[in-house]
Simulated assay, not measured.
Amino acid sequence: MRRIHVIGIGAGDPEQLTLQAVRVLRGTDVFFLLDKGEVTSDLIRLRRDILDTHLPEGAYRLVAVRDPERDRAADGAAYSPAVEDWRGARAAIYERLIAEELGEDERGAFLVWGDPALYDSTLGILEEVQRRGTVPFGYDVIPGISSVSALAARHRTGLSRVARPVQITTGRRLAEGFPEGVDDVVVMLDAHQVFRRYADQDIDIYWGAYIGTPDEILVSGPIAEAAPRIERLRAEARERKGWIMDTYLLRRGEGRGGEQGEESAEE
């Protein structure tokens, strides 16, 4: 039976792959890549760099296809249907790739940023393809170092404090209000820099973009002080590269636990 590996490849640093991930890479026949176009060609290059780091040159086969466009203007009640339409289009592509590009006794792989279990659609889409029953295959999941873990490590801080919970959420949810009963909140997928709404509160931010890559940027400090700097760096980086991936930790009270602040920013 065809076999698919869903491999977490970390936040961008080729050295962040686990030994298990490297072993599975070396046993894979075909790697499937979804190309988002010229603007994000860096993402394809980073995946190639990872493969070139851990595999002999030219010893692997890549199949790249264009990723379907998602309606990013959809909001409110239209948001979920837009995401479902996009996932359905991706499922059709995955189904075709597995059926046409993978032999019945071969192993294919999708390389997933960070960890496949955290804010990634690959597992759900593969489940949908299996439900369709058109092409039989099995799959497994290789965990990776998430951008959340990498962010905390780069800022030399923990995600949680003694006897306190930590919550991982999205910018869309944070816009609805700071979670009740939680003082440590990790925010992903925030295109609108919602943290600025909390600049009048005693909250510190640990922010990072392009974590684990040569373009990495880090800023930490009270939101009121750090927000303007983050806005500027983020706008400059997005203008320069055409895309940005960032995440941050918000921590209410008790300071930052170290002399980081402005010195933690790397441009």
Results as ranks from 00 to 15, higher is better:
residue 77 A to P: 04
residue 92 A to H: 06
residue 75 D to H: 11
residue 86 W to Y: 12
residue 53 T to K: 09
residue 83 V to L: 09
residue 64 A to T: 12
residue 69 E to G: 01
residue 86 W to T: 05
residue 56 P to R: 13
residue 72 R to N: 10
residue 106 E to F: 06
residue 67 D to E: 14
residue 63 V to D: 02
residue 64 A to H: 13
residue 105 D to A: 05
residue 66 R to F: 00
residue 60 Y to A: 07
residue 86 W to F: 14
residue 91 A to P: 11
residue 99 A to E: 12
residue 90 R to C: 00
residue 104 E to G: 12
residue 63 V to N: 14
residue 102 L to T: 10
residue 62 L to E: 15
residue 63 V to M: 08
residue 58 G to P: 11
residue 58 G to Q: 13
residue 71 D to L: 10
residue 106 E to P: 03
residue 97 L to H: 09
residue 79 Y to G: 01
residue 98 I to Q: 00
residue 54 H to W: 11
residue 75 D to P: 08
residue 80 S to M: 10
residue 100 E to C: 05
residue 84 E to L: 09
residue 102 L to H: 08
residue 78 A to Q: 06
residue 64 A to K: 06
residue 58 G to W: 08
residue 67 D to K: 15
residue 97 L to V: 11
residue 80 S to P: 02
residue 103 G to H: 07
residue 90 R to A: 00
residue 60 Y to I: 04
residue 82 A to F: 07
residue 77 A to T: 02
residue 85 D to I: 04
residue 54 H to N: 06
residue 78 A to C: 03
residue 101 E to S: 13
residue 102 L to G: 06
residue 92 A to V: 06
residue 72 R to K: 12
residue 85 D to Q: 07
residue 71 D to W: 14
residue 94 Y to E: 02
residue 70 R to E: 05
residue 53 T to C: 11
residue 88 G to P: 00
residue 102 L to Y: 11
residue 60 Y to D: 11
residue 67 D to L: 10
residue 82 A to I: 01
residue 61 R to Q: 13
residue 59 A to M: 10
residue 90 R to Y: 00
residue 86 W to V: 01
residue 55 L to H: 14
residue 86 W to D: 02
residue 101 E to K: 15
residue 83 V to T: 10
residue 70 R to P: 00
residue 105 D to W: 01
residue 60 Y to M: 12
residue 84 E to K: 08
residue 64 A to W: 13
residue 67 D to A: 12
residue 72 R to L: 07
residue 52 D to M: 12
residue 89 A to G: 13
residue 90 R to V: 05
residue 58 G to L: 08
residue 88 G to L: 01
residue 55 L to D: 15
residue 91 A to E: 08
residue 57 E to M: 06
residue 58 G to R: 13
residue 73 A to Y: 14
residue 73 A to E: 12
residue 99 A to P: 10
residue 100 E to H: 01
residue 66 R to Q: 12
residue 101 E to D: 07
residue 84 E to I: 02
